[in-house]
Computed example of a mutant assay.
Amino acid sequence: MQILELSFVAAVLLAATPVLFASLAGALSAQVGVFNIALEGQMLWGAFSAVAASYYTGSAWAGVFTAIVSTAVFSLALAVGAARWKADPIVIAIGSNLFALGITGFLMRVLFDVSGSFSPRGLQGLEKMRWLEGIPVIGPIFAGQTPLVPLALVLIVAVGLWLKFSPRGLRLRGVGEHPEAASSLGINVSGYQFWVTIAAGALCGIAGAQLSLGNVTVFTENMTAGRGWIAVAAVMLVAGRPLWLPVACLGFGAAEALGFRLQGVGAPQQLTDAAPYAITLLVLVATRIRFPARRASISTESTP
């Protein structure tokens, strides 16, 4: 079993990419003061809608687009409830997760007359970047990946720098850190929270599409299998520093990729399946993490 070869690095990136997109969604929500634990349900809905659209249209990219749009719409409940009505986002998010689990299983039976998993012949998955083959180092790592894999890394760096250095990014951070001060400056706090929550939903749609059309080409009930919760843990781990998200998420990807290789040498599947989540839990326990307790709870109307 070789874990220091380039194919292992490629497996780590593949496993980590859906969590990277979802954790970026969670980090953006946290920046505006919305503790978003609906990532699991939003990813699951994104995975289902991507497969369904790919099946009906014959295009994987149509599946990705549908996942982005439909998951953004799916996140409206959280956006309206938390940003407009100031309801508890945790309660709404738990309801969203349960709804996503139920509705995807129901629609599988209604639309496709199957249960458990849906993998019809001819289902279009995302194409790989085969044109990178032959390039040293880069080729073995990225040639077998979809374009969404490098996109995740680029987006996290771009968003992290935007939040740190751009005026709008600093304003967005201020909405979450000091909502009263932001409101006093005429910033529409609830507007920022609403649209960032919608954008987070779109990112979860990409995460789900990568999971169901990139990592594999199939949809199975509850196929996210806790990845949304891993993304929540990654957001808590980096404590408001999105540029550190790849470190946290690649750690999860490494644990999952190592688990698959351990299965190849006879390790029990139950042990290897639990390894990524156990490692995440141990990291959270060992690290003193405190999510900002204050959420935006001021008036949503901007001052003139």
Rank of each mutant, 00 (worst) to 15 (best):
A72G: 15
A267R: 03
V137D: 07
Q31H: 14
W244K: 12
G191I: 01
L123K: 02
L107Y: 08
L245D: 09
L132F: 10
M129G: 01
G105Q: 15
S184R: 13
N188T: 06
V154A: 15
P304L: 15
G251N: 03
L111Q: 13
A67S: 12
W61P: 00
Q210R: 02
G116Q: 01
E177H: 06
G144Q: 00
G63C: 12
V216Y: 09
V34Y: 12
A207L: 05
T300N: 14
A38C: 07
S183A: 13
V154F: 11
T57Y: 05
S299F: 09
F99M: 08
L211F: 11
A233L: 02
L101P: 01
L132D: 09
A10W: 02
M223L: 12
V80T: 07
A234H: 04
V69C: 13
Q263C: 01
F74M: 15
S54Y: 09
L4Y: 00
G58P: 11
C204I: 11
M1A: 12
R121V: 08
E5R: 08
R288W: 11
L211K: 05
S166Y: 08
D88H: 13
G240K: 05
S212C: 12
L6P: 10
V12L: 12
R261F: 03
L243N: 03
L132P: 03
Y55D: 08
L14R: 15
G116A: 04
A16H: 11
A67T: 11
E180T: 12
I289Q: 14
A158R: 12
I68F: 14
T66W: 09
L163F: 13
V235C: 02
A62K: 03
F21E: 00
G105P: 09
L4W: 14
L24D: 04
F118I: 09
